[in-house]
Design a binder for these strands. Structure first.
Length: 261
DNA sequence: ATGGCCTGTTACACAGGA
């Protein structure tokens, strides 16, 4: 089974890239982030035309997540409130960042973790609070499904080797100590980085800033991840980053990451 | 140090991204 995570930075703008990539790289589930479209305008037909099912949870202009699958998914859940009571969730479902579905005996959770803007900002606090709720959410998901694949754009690089430079890492959004500690606490429920099962060295990235010719200079970050429960981690046979779509004309700033188990 | 660039909106600059 192959599952891919890809922040496409607008599914409508990137539609040809995504469908052409899928036809060249068939996968069981493609998890999209930053679809940036309300559900009634999601380009579902483009995916059904090439033999895929589409499940989406979007909003106007910002955020939005979707699952694209070869076979129908079961028990598709949208938002934290699918498994956590409304009072605990509060306003953390207002932004559409969580969708999940089941294929076989595997639950795939697709996440678009808040960016956080700047250390100490309101959005930064929101990111940390969102991650704290995510821990509760994933704890419940793991109890129900021992085979859990949690993937998406985490907007966090856990190690300095996941970033092109190790300078001033503790002062930067996506690599500050509080973000890293909070994500590590989420993972402590029993999730491991599939990419690091196969690759130890640094210099592998999934996102390059549009500015300053970052892709050409390879000044990137690895912030898109597949975290697997132990039952699935043991089964994993590969985890790879496909940098090819980042070189296309008008690309997303992220590139697909695929795990196979 | 700063801003670089890209997307969607009802825009004719802005917010948000990372």
């Amino acid at each position: 089974m192959k599952v891919t995570s890809w922040n496409v930075n607008s599914v409508r703008t990137r539609l040809e890239h995504v469908t052409q990539w899928l036809e060249a790289n068939p996968v069981d589930v493609l998890c999209l982030q930053e679809t940036k479209v309300v559900d009634k305008d999601f380009p579902e037909q483009a995916f059904t035309d090439i033999g895929y099912h589409a499940y989406f949870y979007g909003q106007k202009s910002y955020n939005g997540v979707a699952l694209i699958s070869k076979e129908p998914l079961s028990d598709v859940q949208k938002g934290f409130s699918a498994v956590i009571d409304e009072e605990t969730v509060g306003d953390l479902d207002a932004q559409k960042r969580v969708i999940s579905g089941v294929l076989g005996n595997v639950r795939v959770v697709n996440l678009y973790v808040p960016n956080g803007s700047a250390i100490g900002s309101e959005k930064y606090d929101y990111k940390l609070n969102w991650l704290a709720l995510l821990k509760q959410y994933l704890t419940l998901q793991l109890e129900a499904y021992p085979k859990l694949n949690v993937c998406g754009d985490f907007n966090i690089a856990l190690e300095n080797k996941d970033i092109y430079t190790d300078k001033r890492r503790d002062k930067h959004i996506m690599s500050s100590p509080a973000e890293r500690e909070t994500l590590r606490d989420v993972l402590s429920i029993g999730l491991s980085d599939a990419f690091r099962k196969f690759t130890d060295e640094g210099g592998h990235f999934s996102w390059w800033d549009y500015r300053s010719g970052s892709f050409a200079r390879n000044t990137g970050w690895r912030i898109d991840h597949h975290y697997l429960s132990s039952a699935l981690y043991e089964q994993a046979i590969s985890c790879t980053i496909d940098i090819e779509p980042r070189g296309l004309e008008r690309p997303s700033d992220h590139t697909p990451v695929t795990v196979e188990y």
